[in-house]
Each structure stands twice: as C-alpha cells, then as structure tokens.
C-alpha cells in the first residue's frame, strides 16, 4: 500500500502540493486526474524520491519511502514516462532489459534479451524491433517499449505518467487495454496520471482528483460520474464554468 500524508512541495513561490493525502491499496489501480500544472507528476516523483517533498510523509507498505535501501526500494517500481524516456543510444531490447543487464537483478545478456523480446511481444511489438534504435520507432511504439521496460523486472508497483498523451484514439485504446491487462495479470499496484477520461475509465479501480495542491475527491471509478464534487464534475464535462479556472 502507498500512503501520502500531508505532503507539501513548493518551487520558489509556486506551492504545488499543499498537504496532499492519498492512499492506494495494494493490488489496485489508482488514477489521479487534474488540470495541467496541478502537481500530479510532482506527487508521483515525490513517491519515487526523484523530488524531495518539503514536508509530509510517504509510506510504501508501512515503511518510510525516504529511508532504507534505495536500490531495493526502486527495484519494486516500474515507471512509464510521459515521453517514454527511452535511452537514445541503446537499441530497443537493451532499453527494455536495462535493469536486467546491471545491478542486483543482473542476468546473462542472452537471457536478458529473451526476456526483453518476450516483454515486447506482451505489448504487441514484434521481435524485429528489438535491435532498432528508439529514434526509429513511432510515438506509439516508443510508448509500448516504455511499457515493456516498466514491466521487464516484474515490479510490484507500476507508475504511468500520461500514458496516452500525444497518441491517436486507437493507439490510446491499445495502450489503455494493455495497462489494464498487465496490471491485472501481474497483480501490481498501479498509479496513473492522466487527463484522458477514456484512460480513467479503462484503467482505474479508484480515482483521485487533485486540485489546489490537495486531493479534492477520491473514490471508486464507478462513483466518479455521480461524485457530486464540483471539481470532478467540471473535469469530466470539460466545461470552462466551475471552480477550476480555465485561465491558470
């Protein structure tokens, strides 16, 4: 389980998180929604330790996320970045098997390559992309390679940062279905950040609405449409009228 307690983070005078509280039960898929610049990615990076919160506590399975063996902590996570964040200089299979080629999870190169190709197949890519460079792939293929990398070491917790941004509706649907399938079959805890309501409905068990640096509403995805929360209602309808200012 992941728990955030009163987490705050400011960049100069921009107070992005202002006491964020959130619980993600083990084995469930939480989707955080909210407008651009409301701190969704910052929250995610605070959990991973990529950004240090100014105050507040973050617990993963009851343990303080900022203490203990960092490598062991990160080995439990997989992450799909918004722009895939593939390493340009490495072929696709080495990107996917990055964690398996070094560090505590190191395998023989042949074995790591086999696992990489299997994970590529799992996300719908043929083995002939394994030796190509990321720059030779389309945006959708890069996202799928990023997804394959995120699941390569079979992590317990997977984060997805805007998994469908910049993709056409068909490819978005493919990625959403893949994420849902993978999270279900791996039994992983998932946290996704998105603006895309079709992703929310496809991926989420639970939804949290982040605005003004705090979680305004959280609940099961089935209750989202009838939440009664003005922030959630405005976000779902996409209306310029409501508590969320259109000009930010």
């Amino acid at each position: 389980m992941i728990r955030m307690e009163n987490v705050t983070k400011a960049f100069d005078d921009n107070h992005v998180l202002q006491g964020m509280n959130l619980e993600i039960p083990k084995g469930t898929s939480m989707v955080i929604i909210g407008g651009s610049g409301t701190g969704k990615s910052v929250a995610l990076k605070c959990i991973l330790g990529l950004i240090k919160p100014d105050s507040g506590m973050i617990y993963v399975d009851g343990k303080d996320a900022q203490k203990g063996d960092r490598d062991a902590f990160l080995a439990r996570f997989g992450m799909l970045f918004q722009g895939a964040a593939l390493f340009d200089s490495l072929p696709v299979w080495q990107n996917v098997a990055f964690r398996l080629l070094r560090g505590s999870l190191k395998r023989q190169a042949d074995e790591a390559r086999e696992i990489a190709i299997e994970k590529l197949r799992r996300v719908g890519l043929k083995s002939n992309v394994a030796d190509r460079l990321p720059a030779e792939l389309s945006g959708g293929m890069q996202k799928r390679v990023g997804l394959a990398r995120a699941i390569a070491a079979e992590p317990e917790i997977i984060f997805f940062d805007e998994p469908t941004t910049g993709l056409d509706p068909i490819m978005s649907g493919v990625i959403n279905d893949l994420i849902r399938e993978i999270v279900t079959e791996m039994g992983a805890t998932a946290m996704t950040i998105t603006h895309d309501m079709s992703s929310v409905r496809a991926i989420a068990d639970n939804v949290a609405m982040l605005h003004g640096g705090v979680i305004q509403w959280t609940g099961p995805v089935g209750q989202m449409d009838a939440s009664g929360d003005p922030y959630v209602e405005q976000f779902i309808s996409g209306s310029a009228e409501g508590p969320i200012e259109a000009v930010r």
């Binding site: 990076k45 991973l48 330790g49 990529l50 960092r70 490598d71 990160l74 080995a75 996570f77 997989g78 992450m79 970045f81 918004q82 722009g83 964040a85 593939l86 390493f87 340009d88 990055f98 964690r99 070094r102 560090g103 505590s104 990398r149």
Partner: peptide, 17 residues
C-alpha cells in the same frame, strides 16, 4: 541536457542506476 529534458535521467534513477 537532452537526457534531462526528456526525463531519461529520471528514468535512470527509477531503474536503480
């Protein structure tokens, strides 16, 4: 710098590197 801008540095960290 390009790696930083495209989050590749963050990706390295999440991959325990």
């Amino acid at each position: 710098a390009t790696m930083k801008v495209t989050e590749q540095i963050d990706a390295l960290v999440t991959l325990s590197t």
